[in-house]
Design a binder for these strands. Structure first.
Lengths: 349, 349
DNA sequence: CTGAAAGCGCTAACAA
DNA sequence: TTGTTAGCGCTTTCAG
């Protein structure tokens, strides 16, 4: 007996349940008749120190016999570097968007051996503080601060205590690394969808709320028109509250314009417009072609006819976020990293 | 000089950035001129050992001066019990539902000092294994295994290595703790919405896919009818694929029935039905009243007219999940814990 | 009331 | 090739 450990006398050999004493590296070492260092080396597959084939085998056997699980917490404590990445989201519950950001972030994080610590704040500053404090206390490698729609934010001070990157948001007049959708390219792409179908007189129903989306998509629309040799006509730009009700309400006004196609600020507006148009006896896309924005699955894919739109790249935003956090990708020196919004053609054009 | 620590000579006093050496409890102790034990006691506000008001003050000062953050990892390592709860979800990215479960779980977890470790698997068994292994290695207190729609599952074996509770799913013929929505009560409630508005001849568009929702909601519908003294007529029960297309397709068939109201299996079906009904020149709710199920915000709240429905209690499911995990609530001895689906009356009835 | 010291499970020199 | 040992930052008896 060389060990001086005092243990509760649980006589059961293969302790794998969650009731008894957890199996530690030391247990494995004893069972395999080697030292903990050796166990550590084979478990982590360290290529630096050579291990005898026999010893290695004995360790592996012991590991599976005992049902050993390394303790990740002890590991990071000892090695100094944690494998956590924090993700604070403001609206996990209200839209699928946050979910996609999480999904993208997690896939990418796992790819590099990191795990996500997520916190939902529903926009509450107190919750935000608490979330960041929690992450800091868990010594995260860094944190992703994300919003469910693209906007300017002023990140909580505590964020500066660690590395962080803003996802789907940015800080005005700052060099804080950020990853956002390319609204201009998106607006361009949506308009191009209409243009490519042969339409030339195209309206744009913009949002009433000022935001990067408002200005960016308009610029993209403008650019696409000009590029197609069409003069930009401000009269063709309408404004609506960015939801179904807004789209519905603007119908009459739109009809005055006598356009062949409409680019709606988002899918919800398009959905409202569908209703409005239908009431006027119009058929989509025969009488008028429609392009949306967001590619909000529940809506876009199931409208009648299915809506051609442009996708907001939330998954990619999340993934790119961890990439810049880990220094794999790097944001441009000035301004945020722009992620493209791909077209999703369906049947409304 | 009593300390024998070797330190990189960073001479900056208030080290709060993330570049230099992290501030540890020892640093605080030195700065405050007390021992680490004392610091630990005041920081954790231990009521067991009395601390001199002066010492306590000095510690607090040192803490804020140095910008000290306790290391949660070291804490759990030393105290033995971790403050993590794992949550594995199968479809974080595709529906807002998973987001609500996460939200509920997190709020409840935080309330008890726990933080959520979330993993998204998108249904991939390998990802699921990996996720659970990761959680086990982080010595989670337990894990919540959740699905985005209510169904029977066979939980991964590894789950048994820790405490777990199934959320929005259950294991057939098993005593595994589970928390699921009360489909019967939900179906009853939806039907009641129609009944209370004075309608008596009510159809039910059920889903084609067999599931707890299919049988449960039907039973609730049945029960409400009987309770109202209305004979259950199987001819009034239609079937449709549970999405917009399904609802739209069943329109003609529904119209044959000459009913005053319809209870749709879910909001998406109702949305499709709206379209179908409109094409037939019918007005909701004047010509026919409609009740949905799910309360999928993007849809239900913004249809024309807004849809009266019954909410799937995802937030509550997540919260209840952690409650039973922590032993605060306990599931019934037989079968899962049922969570009620509340009515959300709007304007379609 | 406060401090010293022994771990928690693991990693990383450094010996052997 | 393998074992020893000193920590990582914190909690927790147990002395003083």
């Amino acid at each position: 007996m060389t060990t001086k450990r005092k243990r509760a006398g649980s006589a059961d050999g293969a302790e794998s349940g969650h009731s008894g004493h957890p199996v530690t590296m030391r247990d494995v070492a004893e069972a395999a008749g080697v030292s903990v260092a050796t166990v550590s080396n084979v478990v982590n597959d360290k290529k630096s120190a050579r291990i005898g084939a026999d010893a290695r085998q004995r360790v592996h056997d012991a590991v599976s016999d005992l049902g050993y699980r390394p303790n990740a917490l002890a590991k990071t404590l000892s090695s100094g570097s944690s494998k956590f990445i924090g993700l604070v989201a403001d609206a996990i519950a209200t839209t699928p968007f946050a979910g996609q950001i999480i999904h993208g972030a997690q896939d990418e994080a796992w790819k590099h051996g990191f795990v996500l610590l997520v916190a939902n704040t529903e926009g509450d500053p107190a919750a935000e503080e608490a979330a960041i404090a929690m992450m800091l206390e868990h010594k995260v490698r860094g944190v992703l601060y994300s919003t469910w729609f693209h906007r300017a934010v002023v990140p909580p001070e505590a964020l500066r205590e660690t590395d962080f990157v803003l996802v789907d948001c940015f800080e005005a007049n700052s060099v804080a690394p950020a990853v956002v959708p390319d609204e201009v390219q998106g607006g361009y792409t949506a308009t191009k969808l209409l243009l490519d179908a042969g339409h030339r007189r195209i309206a744009f129903i913009n949002t009433t709320s000022s935001s990067p989306a408002q200005t960016g998509r308009l610029e993209g629309y403008h650019r696409a028109l000009v590029e197609a040799g069409i003069e930009f006509d401000p009269a063709l730009v309408l404004e609506a509250h960015p939801d179904q009700e807004g789209g519905y309400a603007v119908t009459a006004q739109l009809l005055q314009l006598n356009v062949a196609g409409v680019f709606c600020h988002n899918d919800r507006v398009a959905m409202g417009l569908y209703d409005g148009l239908r009431e006027h006896g119009l058929t989509i896309p025969r009488d008028i072609a429609i392009a949306g924005f967001d590619n909000q699955e529940v809506i876009a894919a199931h409208l009648r006819p299915p809506l051609s739109t442009v996708a907001l790249p939330h998954y990619e935003l999340g993934a790119a976020g961890v990439r810049v956090l880990l220094g794999i990708d790097s944001a441009p020196t000035a301004g945020p990293l722009l992620v493209a919004c791909p077209p999703v053609p369906r049947a409304s054009i």
